[in-house]
């Protein structure tokens, strides 16, 4: 039996009684988590593996799948909408994730200073997360309406003639990115929890040494919560790559309109269209696997970068 201490594997000899206890504990633990394991195997693992198989087939959901090898993957390379949808998703992710992290961190830092009122603000910031994504898609069309939407009304107060956020292809992604900020309450709450864990004595010492608020924030607070920042970054990146409901509701489904725009064609929307509108479930499965590989690759890169930037108390 091996135990891991400070990153090194070391053989530890256990007495026969200890081994029996360990085995009994392992059996009990497995028994307790067996419902979850079963659920994971049936509802997560099997569909993942089965979609891998379906990605090698021509399958319309109604008739049996027919094996076609790697044809779906080859077809993806030829499909201009796949590259367009990937590009849209990539741009959306690259802009929206850092923006969301920065703003939610800034809000959390502000909340840290409001004292007893922070409870109210925590609730207020989190409330939009309770809004169904479909409703957010509809609200987007209302408040970003280029003619008399709330956003343009506010911009007009400052003498700015707002753009046609929902109908001008150049402004559709910016509108969606801004709307995505509607739900950053969850990140704010997580950041706030992390900020509460930054040792006060460290901040006090820095202040005694003459550090101002900016220096305390950038040289102590942010490094101390870098693990949390990394976590939020990864989670939001994955969510951004899978973005679907708001854009689909606003531009591909609401009100029975047939107006849509390629500017909002995100990867999962195109995947959904292939699967459930065109009944190309095999092709959609191949698209899902490509997305899986992309997300894994991006996450792996983020993990590599994090090795130099993220501080873990007590080592990695």
């Amino acid at each position: 039996m091996a135990s891991v201490i400070a990153g090194k594997k070391e053989k530890v000899q256990l007495r026969p009684g200890q081994r029996r206890n360990r085995r009994r504990n392992v059996r009990a633990a497995l028994l307790f988590i067996s419902p979850w394991i079963l659920g994971m195997l049936v509802f997560t693992a099997w569909p993942i593996f089965y979609s891998g198989y379906l990605s090698l087939t021509d399958y319309d959901v109604i008739n049996d799948p027919t094996f076609i090898g790697l044809d779906n993957y080859a077809q993806m390379l030829q499909d201009p909408k796949v590259s367009l949808a990937l590009w849209n998703t990539f741009i959306y992710t690259v802009v929206s994730v850092p923006l969301q992290v920065l703003i939610s961190l800034a809000l959390a830092l502000l909340l840290l200073r409001v004292g007893r009122a922070s409870g109210f603000f925590r609730t207020a910031f989190y409330l939009p997360n309770m809004t169904p994504p479909v409703a957010i898609g509809i609200i987007l069309l209302l408040i970003f309406n280029g003619h008399d939407g709330l956003v343009n009304e506010i911009l007009e107060v400052f003498g700015i003639d707002g753009p046609a956020w929902t109908t001008d292809p150049d402004w559709i992604k910016p509108g969606l990115i801004l709307m995505n900020l509607w739900t950053l309450g969850a990140s704010v709450i997580i950041f706030l929890a992390a900020l509460h864990n930054v040792p006060q004595e460290m901040i006090d010492s820095a202040r005694v040494d003459g550090a101002n608020s900016w220096q305390v924030t950038t040289r102590i607070t942010v490094p101390m919560i870098s693990g949390t920042i990394f976590f939020i970054f990864i989670v939001n990146t994955i969510a951004s790559f899978q973005t679907f409901t708001e854009a689909y509701t606003a531009y591909f489904g609401a009100g029975g309109t047939t107006y849509s725009t390629d500017a909002a064609l995100f990867y999962v929307i195109y995947l959904f269209q292939q699967a459930f509108e065109f009944l190309h479930m095999g092709y959609a499965s191949a698209m899902a696997w490509l997305l899986f590989v992309i997300i894994m690759a991006v996450t792996a890169v983020q993990v590599l970068i994090s090795r130099k930037l993220v501080y873990y108390e007590g080592g990695r």
Partner: peptide, 20 residues
């Protein structure tokens, strides 16, 4: 690796109807 293995096993079992 596991996905590829499962896919290969599953494809071995695929029947296909040759069309609707």
């Amino acid at each position: 690796g596991v996905a590829a293995a499962v896919a290969l096993v599953a494809t071995g079992c695929a029947t296909g109807t040759g069309g609707p």
